[in-house]
């Protein structure tokens, strides 16, 4: 039972995810270097936030060619658990592990603030500690968090319950005003059809300890620890 956190050049939330897994969730964890194919027998792979390769060409566009991503793709295809946070979500979309793309926020600016998201699907290994329609307060911090996909994909996501988090008001209403970045259908996080790959823009590791202002994000780590224990 082990977590692995990938380190790309330019990852900057790798240590944060590592800390939360090790110190808060009390689970074994290691770093995985981008140039290695070896996932070191990890059971959960976290693709952390940051600016992999500076995000210079397009967010995630270069990171998807990293050797480690080959292994992550095979691992995911075999049902392994993969969590992409922020830049990690962008990379998973670029790598084709999740549908759609994350484009520039409608306000054209970087936004860092806590937002409310509603749990749309509590029946995933990432959200099993949550209640369906529960509202979580978790911070975002991104310039390209505006989720976009075509209508057919959106319909599929909706039909198959692949939308896991949607931006909402504090009361749980998914209004346009509650959407910080222009995402289609207020999407804040989606999973693949198998439910074993999740990408989310909010940073759960930033809301996992009371001194940081909240612990709602910890439910994601708790769910994962539970899923592994049940294996």
């Amino acid at each position: 039972m082990k977590f692995g956190v990938i380190v790309f050049p330019g990852s900057n939330c790798d240590h944060d995810a590592f800390w939360t897994v090790e110190q808060v969730a009390k689970q074994p964890v290691c770093f995985l270097w981008h140039e290695s194919h070896d996932l070191e027998n990890c059971d959960v792979i976290i693709v952390p936030g940051g600016f992999a390769y500076g995000d210079y060409l397009r967010t995630g566009a270069i990171a998807k060619f990293s050797p480690v991503m080959d292994s992550v793709s095979s691992f995911a295809a075999a049902g392994g658990l993969v969590l992409g946070i922020c830049n990690g979500f962008q990379i998973l979309c670029e790598a084709g592990l999740l549908p759609g793309a994350l484009i520039r926020n409608t306000g054209l600016k970087y936004i860092c603030k806590p937002v409310s998201v509603r749990v749309e699907n509590a029946d995933t290994p990432f959200t099993s500690s949550c209640e369906e329609r529960q509202v979580l307060t978790i911070p975002i911090g991104h310039m390209e968090g505006n989720y976009f996909c075509d209508d057919a994909t959106l319909a599929r996501l909706q039909r198959d319950k692949q939308i896991v988090f949607r931006y909402c008001t504090a009361d749980g209403e998914t209004t346009p005003d509650a959407n910080p970045n222009g995402s289609v259908d207020n999407i804040a996080g989606i999973c693949n059809p198998g439910g074993n790959v999740l990408g989310m823009m909010p940073h759960p590791e930033r809301a996992s300890e009371p001194e940081l202002g909240g612990t709602d994000g910890f439910q994601i780590f708790q769910s994962l620890a539970g899923a592994l224990a049940a294996k």
């Binding site: 944060d16 911090g141 590791e205």
Partner: peptide
């Protein structure tokens, strides 16, 4: 709000 003020947790 344009500055990441939370990274490094």
């Amino acid at each position: 709000e344009q500055y990441d003020h939370m990274v490094q947790t």
